[in-house]
Every structure is written in C-alpha cells, then in structure tokens.
C-alpha cells in the first residue's frame, strides 16, 4: 500500500487533488481511497487529505500515520504544521515552490505549481488552482500514469487548461 498525505489550506484544492489522484489510480486498475480529515477548519486554515493506493481493496479508515509521500501545496502551512511528521525514512516530498528545498533523509522534489497556474490562467476567485497541476507532478513521480492522470482530470473538468497545467508540472518538476 502506498500512502500519501496532502497539506494545503482550505479552498486551495487539496481535497480535489486527493479525489483526482484516487480516480487516476482507479484508471490504472488499482484500488484507492481518498479522505480529507475534517476538523473545524475554515477557508484558509491548514488542512490535510489522505490518499491510499493498493492492489487490493483498502479496509483502513483511520488516518495515515506513516506516509510514504507528503505533498505540500502551500509552504506557509509549514510555519505551524510539521509536514514531515511520521514520513517514512527516505520518504518522498513534493513541494509547491519555485526554489529547490532540502530535507535531510528524504527525497524532495519542487515544482512551481502556483506559477504554472498563473501562467495558464487557472485562477478562480483570485486563487491559483493547484489541484490539477499537482496531478501532473504525481504522474512524473510514477504514483499514477500520465494517461490516467489526464483521463481523471478530463472527467472532472471540461476546461483543457487543467490538462495543460498538469502537463507543464510533469515537464517542469525538478529532478
């Protein structure tokens, strides 16, 4: 089983990213569950979503305690939240950042999802959309296939800019 924890702020699309990831995994012929942890959060508050992907049906409902991967859609949550908490040794991190970041003991890749969203004019109510670009980054990491990523995005969004943004993230993510 592969377990992913997504950190974001309410309204940034972390929950939708989790859903898209689960949909793409399903297209890959796998089982997946996605669940946000619902607290008393409001728009703008730090939130976490969990995605589990496996070859067998998933029976777990409790929160992910030791993720294989952490996705940080908004680096400002790191001021108050320990995004590395429980991350497995050598675990992977995808971080929405224009600059390279280092976390000793972990494998960190950065990609400027916000920049991509602004460039592709993926902005809703003044906020750049991060949930579709990040799916491209996850495909690059081999969590899902690129074909399934695109299929999932097109199922949920008719605007092709979402697929273009995912493509851009796929190409631009750091090594």
């Amino acid at each position: 089983m592969f377990e992913i924890r997504i950190h974001s702020r309410g309204g940034q699309g972390g929950v939708t990213a989790a859903r898209l990831l689960a949909m793409a995994a399903l297209h890959d012929g796998k089982y997946a569950t996605a669940c946000p942890f619902y607290g008393a959060e409001r728009r703008g508050a730090p939130i976490v979503s969990f995605v589990r992907i496996d070859d067998r049906p998933i029976k777990i409902y409790s929160r992910i305690r030791q993720p294989d991967m952490v996705v940080v859609l908004d680096t400002s949550v790191m001021d108050t939240v320990d995004v590395l908490h429980g991350l497995k040794k050598g675990g992977r991190i995808i971080i929405n950042s224009a600059g390279k970041r280092e976390f000793p003991g972990f494998e960190c890749r950065n990609v400027d999802l916000t920049g991509i969203a602004l460039r592709k004019n993926l902005v809703v109510a003044g906020s750049p959309i991060l949930n579709t670009p990040v799916i491209g980054a996850l495909a690059k990491m081999g969590i899902i296939t690129a074909d399934s990523a695109k299929k999932a995005i097109r199922e949920m969004f008719s605007d092709e800019r979402n697929v273009n943004a995912a493509d851009a993230a796929y190409k631009e993510m750091s090594a």
């Binding site: 989790a18 859903r19 689960a22 569950t33 996605a34 669940c35 946000p36 619902y38 998933i58 409902y61």
Partner: peptide, 12 residues
C-alpha cells in the same frame, strides 16, 4: 453510514 469516515471518504 459513519459520519465523515464513510460519508465523506472517496472509494471506488
């Protein structure tokens, strides 16, 4: 069905 645990989880 369990609140949030099942009402809000996304599964196939």
């Amino acid at each position: 069905l369990d609140g949030f645990l099942l009402s809000h989880i996304m599964q196939p």
